[in-house]
């Protein structure tokens, strides 16, 4: 997408540059308005939109029994609930998820609006008081990622970080399990 944008920018600016620095020449209204103004822009947008919808549809959370974890945000920290061998396990500031399988994260907030975001795993979703948002993510390989609050939430906003520990599903840490919460 970056490359495409770069090419379009270069193209438009080249046309503008030619128009400015070359002398006058016959200029057909139909060609500029219909072909370039309408035709060109609409075909680029149609391709882009179809691509975006297709990707978006794949990323959407749906009810297919995927692992579910919960995140409750408050000023200024995160509390995660994930399945464990002996029932739900609550952790502060660290989320444990298995690698290689999609999981849903259920977002709620105790006070103001926050937003859950792990840049390396993908998109973000707001945690809004009174609402329950479900967001689907997947981590490919075990490792540790940094997450943060992406909606301005007051004095402690910049420090409202958390960690996502992605573990190998064959070898989970002793206190969590990759099974869904009952």
């Amino acid at each position: 997408m970056l490359i495409g944008s770069g090419l379009i920018t270069a193209l438009v600016l080249t046309l503008a540059g030619l128009a400015i620095w070359r002398g006058p020449r016959p200029s057909d209204e139909r060609r500029w308005i219909i072909w370039w103004g309408l035709g060109f822009s609409m075909s680029v947008l149609a391709v882009l939109l179809a691509f975006a919808l297709w990707t978006g549809e794949r990323m959407i959370a749906r009810d297919d029994g995927a692992l579910q974890v919960q995140a409750e945000a408050q000023q200024w920290g995160w509390r995660f609930t994930q399945p464990g061998p002996g029932g739900p396990v609550v952790t502060e500031g660290v989320l444990y998820v298995p690698a290689g399988q999609p999981f849903d994260i259920v977002l709620t907030s105790r006070d103001v609006i926050h937003s859950f975001w792990v840049p390396q795993l993908g998109g973000k979703m707001d945690a809004i008081p009174g609402h329950r948002n479900v967001h689907r993510l997947m981590a490919d390989a075990p490792g540790t990622h940094e997450g943060l609050c992406a909606e301005f939430c007051g004095i402690g906003h910049a420090a409202m970080r958390f960690e996502v520990v992605v573990y190998d599903p064959a070898d989970p840490p002793p206190f969590v399990s990759a099974e869904s919460l009952p």
Binding site: V12, A16, A19, R25, P26, S27, D28, W32, W36, G37
Partner: peptide
């Protein structure tokens, strides 16, 4: 934008 470019072109 293309109307402006076309104007300058002419």
């Amino acid at each position: 934008i293309f109307a402006w470019i076309g104007t300058m072109w002419a």
